[in-house]
Amino acid sequence: MPFDAMITRLALKPLALSACLALSALSANASQIFVSNERDNTVTVLDSATLALVKTITVGTRPRGIVISPDGREVLVCNGDSDNISVIDASTLEVSRTIDSGPDPETLALSPKGDVIYVSNENDSMVTLLDRGAGTVLARVPVGIEPEGLAVSADNKTVVDVSESTSMAHFIDVATRAVIANVLVDTRPRVAEYSRDGHDVWVTSEVGGTVAVIDASSHQVAHKIAFDIPGVRQELISPVGLRFSLDGRLAFVALGRANRVAVIETATFKVVKYLLVGDRVWQLALSPDGRTLYATNGLTNDLSVIDVVDLKTIRSVPVGRLPWGLVIKP
């Protein structure tokens, strides 16, 4: 290389370097979507802005439930057949450690502060409470068969677990670690979610085809929401994932094999729209600004992107095989 050319390059370097730094800072701050792929044993990371693939991270066997810590630093994934939780460093996108979870963890939830992990142990009918930092077991609470979805109240006083094969929502008192109420819902409940105001717990029933709205204090089913989609057979309507809009006015329910997301007005419990998505839509996640909803489609191996303002499905993006759950890093 000629001497003068080298001088030029050296002179340019500081500029190029700073541009580079700016770029990397940008990408480090960009919102990312983490999708657990049950059959690939991976987590797909997508850039939220471009929906381009950032990385595919290998985790344990049969990853399903996935959450992100309140500070956005760690993504935790349940590996059902490895009996543990992979902890992904959200900045390096590497698995930094694994935590023993007890047998067959299907889903997990975090306390509002992020210090306690609640895990559904599907094969032995338990909810395990783990210390997130130390990875140690704090308690194991017996619940119904095939515990699945977990919801934590904003004050961290109550954890709601639904057991699929018992068809109940179990209200667990965190302080005493005891079940204080068992609420019978329709067949195969999948997901529980506190309403934004904390007044109710909404529970989806996959085989029953309904959503139960349970009063969080009286533990009574206050409302039951059914779905009727013209041209779609009733037995295909299988509600699973559920999320509320940021303002709490709308609830979104993934209807499984009906290949639609239902939009429900929470004030009236009326379905206002059905959004067509991919095959066997499973779980949902809302972007931090509340403007975009993402849905994993288990059988088409993709992610549907829904505009929450216009209530329209705007894109689909391929991910891994049998995508199950997802979280968004702000």
Partner: peptide, 10 residues
């Protein structure tokens, strides 16, 4: 009456 039996429908 509805019975769930791992076949995707009641």
């Amino acid at each position: 009456f509805e019975l769930a039996g791992f076949k995707g429908q009641a």
